[in-house]
Nucleic acid binder design. Sequence first.
RNA 1: GCGCUCGUAGCUCAGUGGAUAGAGCAGAGGACUUCUAAUCCUAAGGUCGCAGGUUCGAAUCCUGCCGGGCGCACCA
Length: 552
Amino acid sequence: MTPAKLAETILAAAHDVFAERGLDRAVLPGMTAVERPRNPEHGDYSSNLAMQVAKRAGTPPRELAAAVAERLSRAPGIKSVDVAGPGFLNVRLDAAAAGELARVVVEAGDAYGRSAALAGRNVNLEFVSANPTGPVHLGHTRWAAVGDSLRRILAAAGAEVTSEHYINDAGTQMDRFAESVRAAAKGEPTPEGGYPGEYVAELAQQVLAAHPDALEGPEERQRRLFLDEAYRLMLAEMRASLARFGVRFDVWFSERTLHDGGAVEHALNKLREQGHVYEAEGAVWLRTTDFGDDKDRVLIRSNGEKTYFAADSAYYINKRERGFDKCIYLLGADHHGYVNRLRAIAACAGDDPDFNIEILIGQLVSLVRGGQPVRLSKRAGTLITLDEIVDAVGVDAARYSLARSSADSPLTLDLDVITRQSNDNPVYYVQYAHARIASLLRNATELRVERGTDFDPGLLGHQRENDLLKKLGEFPEVVSTAAELREPHRVARYLEELAGTYHRFYDVCRVLPQGDEPATELTRARLWLVEASRIVLANGLELLGVSAPERM
RNA sequence: GCGCUCGUAGCUCAGUGGAUAGAGCAGAGGACUUCUAAUCCUAAGGUCGCAGGUUCGAAUCCUGCCGGGCGCACCA
């Protein structure tokens, strides 16, 4: 029996009790969930339903709980129901009902954990959106890992997801970048306000290699050539770095196309129609203060140039017109000042800022090495790139360590630890559980022991088997909760718990026959449980973009 | 100054109002004739930043204070 099924059964029992006693059934919630008590004395599952509704039902919680318990204990698959504390219902399942879960998981396979929780949602998920003026670096990496996992998790919860990377390829920063590359090609120092990094010199060499005459001809031709070539090379490098990190972007959206295609004009007109645009001091403004921003924002400067904010507005409106009902932005805490103005764009466009736009703010990653904080700076050359991180620890360890903690919490990475690639990273604990299972299954094949088409779930009655079954049963809810709360780290934490539960099972429950012993029904039942465990570990790791190794 | 955000074990972090606050790592002790010991078991480790409040119940919600990070452009 799955937790969801049990919750339904409990709710049904409560409905019966309410009907019997003539209580108002509207007091009961439409859905309820069961918890897994930490203390094993509190049963396999517990429900606080009676306490939640007692007050409004006008019945003491313990009395209500006792009545529900009496009915519930007669339901199939239920071994016992106790009322405890202020009104908890503590439920134990039959071994057979619990063991059935192994079948549910194995038969679902890859699909175990998927749901329709967010079905019908058409989501645009924007993250990273690094400027194409430098390599993807550590500052972006957390959002790459978290964003891509979120993409996978939202999709698993049934949402239609498009991941998107915005390219700020218009404006003066691009010109400064191109001029920095050109200066490097000429062997000149970096211009004022330009980009000094080593990568700039490398780009310069690449441009010269492809175009030996790049520094000849009219100034304007040179500028254009360096702009086009440096941009093309830099963008290709960014795409390669992110692809190597396992991050998929469905759309790379160029800011230039907004300007060239008239989308900015179109957006301005739309905002005007909604009545939130005005002119003052020679500039054109959006009255974002109508919707919680602390000051109005300029769309067109008095010199006629459109602001970055105008492009942001156009981009949002463009997304909505492409059919996305939810636009999610993943931003670092250094951009939290944009939250109100972005929400105001949605409101000014006539949308619901509490539904159509969602801005997730993540805390920044800081670094220590040798116990000393490391400050990252493009200028000082202490930038750490995504490629360097992957070279040092590999994709799995990097993605996992960034995705396993809540984006809300400031993260401190110790470079000494992370580059040591030791067991300090819990990813190995999880992966090892998968590799151990894969090894066991190889041995089973060698021994010609097969899982077969059926098994007796009642044989899975050992405490450690029960623990494992319960943990496997949690997975679908972990995924849907992670999707609803936009918190991929929940999947990682769950996998660590599952791996631990599996290791403890493995420690005391022999699966395969030893020596000349024959395979038994218990062997087969445990093979179903082991395969179910492998499936959930693999499905969970997939959601994090981390590999599930066959061997370690 | 205004605003946002974070504060939980020595370290890195979980804990969407529930029962005795958890994990990993580090440190102490134990288990290899191994279905992979990258594992398991035992013990130790806490003023959940501080002080009030809300309620049957608060690490969780509210207020104030303290401390860290970040942000406050007709910049991009």
